[in-house]
Design a protein around this nucleic acid. Structure first.
Lengths: 138, 138
DNA sequence: CTTGAACCTACAGCTACTGTAGAATTTGCA
DNA sequence: TGCAAATTCTACAGTAGCTGTAGGTTCAAG
């Protein structure tokens, strides 16, 4: 039943041991059972919860958003709309980040194409980095 | 000549006063002149340097990369190639971030489209976030 | 000359971990 | 069963790149 050590859990969810303890500290993971010698022991539920957290983190959700999502799952009668709302907000955020990065990419291309291979004295890269007025970025 | 207070500089470069002091602490900005009453006073050179730093930050360069670029400008005889190398590395990094974010976006779209508006008990959003196996992300 | 804005230093806090030290426990193998 | 190696424990410091605060001083306008 309570078969996983913290190291097992870490391996299974591709996390670090310290990260799991950190999640416990900050209330994302519940306090697990302990052995007689005070070591943590986990069950499948804990592994699922940790996987959920890690996957959400990979999708860019903040720990606060994840906390909110986990709180929602603890109240199964509430509307799914709130969970969806959090996901949509995250989507909006990701799309705006993509847009900004595309702008950056454009200017970086311009900068690196300006290099004519001379010395620093007439380096167009540095020059271009100095002139914010010319760039498209917000 | 030394006409800018730290507040003037902050306004001119759209930064916070504390950020300028932080850049000084970490060696990105040189220690400026001081008034008799110990307040910092800057000239145009300092403003140019700060603008360079801010613009580079907006393009996603780390403070370490910026330090390297600034170091290059202090040695005008060196090859421009090194500066270009840093810019190209940054470009590669930005492109990989864009690619990853595009993957995330795809999955977030899938997640938010799965919401059918019921209760949390059968929330597809949460379900989808739990199942890493189904997703495309790395 | 006064008053209020801006400045000073020093330090704590933010996110989301990661690393370290030194001690205790558990596990595998003889 | 005994022992060594691996793992775990707590507690705390450090990372990037700032940002905010407290308590005090200086500057500039009127």
């Amino acid at each position: 039943m309570y078969k996983y050590s913290i190291g097992d859990l870490a391996r299974a969810a591709a996390t670090k041991v310290q990260t799991i303890r950190y999640y416990e500290e900050t209330g994302l993971m519940p306090e697990p059972m302990r052995t007689a010698g005070n070591q943590r022991r986990y069950d499948e539920t804990a592994l699922n919860r940790l996987s959920f957290i890690r996957h959400s983190r990979q999708l860019g959700f903040s720990l606060d958003s994840i906390k909110a999502l986990l709180h929602l799952t603890d109240n199964p009668d509430q509307s799914c709309q709130q969970a969806n709302q959090i996901a949509v907000e995250q989507l909006v955020e990701v799309e705006s980040r993509i847009a900004r990065l595309n702008d950056l990419r454009k200017e970086l291309v311009r900068i690196s194409q300006s290099c004519k291979g001379g010395t620093m004295a007439d380096c167009k890269v540095i020059e271009t980095l100095s002139e914010h007025s010319l760039c498209d970025c917000s």
